[in-house]
Design a protein around this nucleic acid. Structure first.
Lengths: 215, 215
DNA sequence: TCGCCGTTCCGTACGGCGTACGGTACAGTG
DNA sequence: CACTGTACCGTACGCCGTACGGAACGGCGA
């Protein structure tokens, strides 16, 4: 058997691909090893355990969202960074699961965090409010994009799709008139760039106003 | 052995408690059965499988966030509903995991969704934009509250806490000046009512402005 | 060249998981 | 009292993560 054909980076890349294809529920060290044509325990030469491997995958996938620089006024910078983060999550849907159980911290996300915070300070937020605005943006981006990814998955699987349609159409119109009326809109407008930009506009407009009111 | 001491509701309640205590990773049908003093397979009399059980838990936990009515102007209504959703997630942290992999749909969340949508329509949004505003709010609330829950967990576990502190203090100050300066603020202000209200203010202020601009 | 050693890879094994299947024993009906 | 449906359970199978000890290879000093 050949030697030294493996590396931590190669394993992480393969894991990222497998995770994106199968979802985190189905992902297993054994499956990854099989994909790499290697015995399961071999992977433990490079990682202490599954958790450490998943952390590495998250870092790897997130690193690609780092910027060289964001240009323009602070609003434009904030938009750019948020769009990049969302783009990376859409490209690697497994990031929704990885981010949600592994608090992002450390080098991999430092580049984005630095840029985003700098833009907010430049906008005029003091230390405390910049941190709050940062958290708000991060929560918004991850939250909305997660909804988006779930909806995409749902629409891909015909069985799940039918099940949801069934539940929706089973709602009593007299009890939930607004909801029933908006069902189609909710299923069609959620997801997509327009939805995301709508929300981003709201948050940034809110920031602008707050900066005027509380200078 | 006694009979008929079990019920779907009892199982769901116990599962919710166990999930909150141990987290979704550690949760297992076998552990739940042990807690209920029953053989694992017994639970399959009430649920088709683990997935169906978890769906029921999500529905149960979410149902408690439903309102009778939200009063006041649309802003106040929106605030009330969002606060309730956040409150319920904080009370049952496992909801972060459950919501993220199981798209919420159906009766359990219909009450909240109806109220929230009605408030948005009342505010003046047309069908399409009400749906977008709804998604924005939902994503924001779930996203930010998830960050909050993770931070709380992290602060509870001394080992994890130390690890994060280590990573943070290891960041080169010349490369990430803004981030390093804000480290303390990020760890202290994230989470808590003030953080949440800050973000909610931003989003709602953004909505108000948009309604003025696009009537 | 040979012997040694660190690294890489693997076979086996253990305990735990979800759950299919085939029971068993009770409650309620006739 | 027999009969039937339901609630419960014991066993077993195929997965999982991974601890452990060993094998094979590359490189290095002698």
């Amino acid at each position: 058997m050949p030697r030294n054909t493996l590396s931590a980076e190669l394993i992480v890349t393969a894991a990222l691909g497998l995770l994106d294809r199968t979802g985190i529920e189905q992902f297993s060290v054994r499956a990854l090893a099989k994909e790499l044509g290697v015995a399961p325990m071999t992977l433990y030469t490079y990682f202490r355990g599954k958790d450490e491997l998943l952390d590495a995958v998250r870092d790897h996938a997130l690193a690609a969202a780092a910027l060289t620089t964001a240009y323009g006024g602070w609003q434009h910078q904030v938009r750019t960074i948020c769009r990049r983060l969302r783009g990376q999550i859409l490209e690697h849907p497994c990031l929704t699961s990885l981010l949600q159980q592994r608090p992002l911290a450390g080098h991999e996300s430092a580049e984005s965090a630095e840029s985003l915070l700098r833009a907010l300070v430049e906008a005029g937020f003091d230390v405390e409010n910049a941190a709050r605005a940062y958290t708000t943006l991060l929560g918004f981006v991850v939250g909305v994009t997660t909804l988006e990814v779930r909806l995409l998955e749902e629409n891909r699987d015909p069985e799940r799709r039918e099940k949801v349609r069934e539940i929706m159409s089973g709602l009593p119109a007299d009890r939930y008139p607004t909801l029933v009326e908006h069902t189609a809109a909710l299923r069609h407008t959620v997801g997509g760039d327009t939805q995301f930009e709508f929300g981003l506009d709201l948050v940034i407009a809110g920031m602008e106003q707050r900066l005027i009111l509380v200078p």
